[in-house]
């Protein structure tokens, strides 16, 4: 390995170590914020994989956040599955539901696909609002007994959720990095560059997109399950929120730099900094976010990471397969 790669690995290990030890140095408020940063970053990287690398512009990933959350609550409340087991199961269930969903969504392409995914998410929201056992439109809380069974006390439970959120984020970021460095990544890059040319050289673009869609749905479901375990309460509005799970996620990816692994990380940092300072401004907060994304798209369509690349040609996650 070159010195540069050792430095990169060292930096990564230090960063991970600092984050892993979070429960020992961070306040409750900071931990809660970091958990949110982790799942937003994971959601952003997953959407980036879908839209940035596979050309699947979905505006309906909230369908899978919500399905994961509701699957989690149902498994824990009705099937008596302990929450820690219900989390991965919720992810798997979401992936299973995403399968038939993909057949519907993949009938459409381009902007129609985007709108179609949104409509599908709305359908799921309306369906879950009709289920009395899950509290209908007003939602339901996770029974205290189930929550207490997770860990010995509140701070132990919060640390546990923190570590799970961190683990999911690391798996997503490093997983996508590994995929992009592999043969599949080569095909995905080709697909992103020019779909017609990719399919002409024999890349199985349709199957590839299908697999990516189902895999990201499953991971998104897992994240959704965790989000609502942390929140302890789920409602159709919150679970299938297009603002929280699509608009903000797209904002993060687009301002950071779509189609790169570094971009969503930068976007996530900017998003949370802005939110910490602007959240009190109410509607103005969203207006400012919107304005910032428009300006960034006009100045540098490759986002903040694109701005940095203009200044210096560096890479944090080298994905080119060079021998």
């Amino acid at each position: 390995m070159s010195i540069q790669n050792w430095a990169r690995l060292g930096l990564l290990i230090v960063a991970v170590a600092i984050l892993v030890s979070g429960p020992y140095w961070a306040s409750r408020g900071t931990m809660r914020l970091l958990i949110e940063v982790f799942y937003f970053l994971a959601l952003a990287q997953l959407w980036n994989l879908l839209a940035g690398y596979s050309g699947l512009i979905s505006v309906g990933q909230q369908a899978f956040v919500g399905l994961g959350g509701y699957a989690m609550f149902s498994l824990a409340m009705f099937a008596g599955v302990p929450i820690l087991f219900a989390l991965p199961l919720a992810g798997i269930l979401t992936a299973l539901i995403a399968w038939p969903t993909a057949f519907v969504a993949f009938r459409l392409s381009g902007p129609y696909f985007a709108i179609g995914t949104w409509v599908i998410a709305e359908v799921y929201r309306l369906v879950f609002a009709q289920i009395p056992a899950l509290g209908g439109g007003s939602g339901i809380s996770l029974p205290a007994g189930l929550v207490k069974a997770m860990a010995s006390g509140r701070s132990a439970r919060e640390s546990l959720i923190y570590w799970i959120a961190l683990a999911i984020m690391l798996v997503v970021v490093l997983g996508i990095w590994i995929v992009m460095r592999s043969r599949v990544g080569l095909s995905l890059s080709a697909l992103r560059d020019n779909e017609e040319a990719a399919v002409s050289v024999g890349v199985r673009t349709r199957s590839l997109k299908f697999v990516i869609y189902i895999a990201t749905a499953g991971m998104t479901g897992l994240i959704g399950a965790l989000i609502f375990v942390q929140k302890l309460r789920i409602t159709p509005e919150a679970a299938f929120s297009v603002t929280d799970w699509s608009v903000l996620v797209i904002f993060i990816v687009v301002i950071g730099g779509i189609g790169t692994l570094e971009g969503p990380i930068l976007g996530c940092i900017l998003f949370f900094v802005l939110r910490e300072y602007l959240a009190d401004l109410g509607a103005w907060y969203m207006i400012i976010l919107g304005t910032i994304s428009v300006v960034i798209m006009l100045v540098e369509p490759r986002g903040l990471w694109g701005l940095i690349l203009r200044w210096r040609n560096i890479t944090v996650f080298p994905v080119t397969r060079r021998k």
């Binding site: 990719a198 002409s200 080119t320 060079r322 021998k323």
Partner: peptide, 24 residues
Amino acid sequence: AMSPEGRRLFPSLSVRENLQIGAS
């Protein structure tokens, strides 16, 4: 297999990667 009009190479890939993708 076709070498298309206008080449249609994959701009984000290196020369060797462009060749490797042909072996898909």
